[in-house]
Computed example of a mutant assay.
Amino acid sequence: MTIDAVGLTKRYRDVLAVDDVSFRVAPGEIAALLGLNGAGKTTTIRMLLGMVRPTRGSVSLFGRPVRPGARAVWARVGHLVETPAAYPELTVRENVGLAARWYGPADGRAVDAVIRRLGLEKHAGHRARTLSHGNAQRLGLAKALVHRPDLLVLDEPANGLDPAGVAEIRQLLHELADVDGVTVLLSSHLLTEVARLATRIAVLATGRLVWDGTAAGLLAQARPRLAIAVRDRERAAIALRAGGHICEEDGTGGLTLTGERAIARPDEIATLLVTAGCPPTRLVVEQDDLETGFLRLAGAK
């Protein structure tokens, strides 16, 4: 496995930021950590990279444990975590060249190649402080890629990019995985973008892993339900429960049923309610979309 995380836990005094998270990423996969802001994505990535020491748990990259001084491991990893850092008074080319030197002898051809690949040619001679937010993000990606890593770890890689830039990064990451065999782990709160890109998705909610699988598998978890609107909700709920159905309030004044019998035979539910003297004003079988399923897993209200 390229990444093998077991029982990762991080506590900051009274705050449990990450709670017993385990997952694996195979070579050549594009995997995503998905979650709302504050779910623990960045803390998890920092533990994977050895930037933060876990309170409990362990991480291995390429079969080797993550620990300080493991240069052989870090030489195979590129990363961009949170805000991209750069020397503001140095040019784009100089910043990328310095990043290249961290990993060995400077390779001018590799520097020029990654600058072209990230669309930064016309900015190569500009000081980093003059870049737009989107181009600063591209510079951060260029520095992460200049040494041709086997694993690329990205925290919100589309941050600050316009829709065209997001599409370019998506295409780049596909090429890195499909053509170059690079393993990619990215974090994001943008579900639609992750669903287009990732072959594997792990969903974090309040520091815990609540889903680990494919985007198609996540959609398959979406629950069908029978949504009912009635004028007398309490009377309708009593009638439904007396008929052996479990119903819940939907938060908007209506009722929902998730039992297989109710979903398969909504006409029986309508008859039951009419007989009880509270005919439905609306009765429809609904199916969650991918976003609704994700938000439920993520604990969003």
Rank of each mutant, 00 (worst) to 15 (best):
D4M: 04
D4T: 05
D4V: 05
A5Y: 10
A5C: 12
A5F: 09
G7I: 07
G7M: 09
G7A: 14
L8H: 13
T9R: 13
T9E: 10
T9K: 08
K10W: 06
K10M: 08
K10N: 07
R11E: 02
R11Y: 06
R11V: 15
Y12I: 15
R13A: 15
D14A: 15
V15S: 08
L16W: 13
L16I: 12
A17D: 00
V18D: 03
V18S: 08
D19L: 07
D20M: 01
D20I: 02
V21D: 02
V21S: 03
S22P: 01
F23S: 03
F23D: 00
R24T: 12
V25L: 04
V25Y: 00
A26D: 14
P27T: 06
P27R: 07
G28E: 00
G28R: 06
E29T: 08
I30Q: 03
A31I: 04
A31L: 02
A32I: 10
L33C: 08
L33Y: 09
L33G: 07
L34D: 08
G35N: 10
G35P: 04
L36M: 12
L36T: 13
N37Y: 13
A39M: 11
G40I: 12
G40D: 05
G40L: 09
G40W: 13
K41Y: 03
T43S: 14
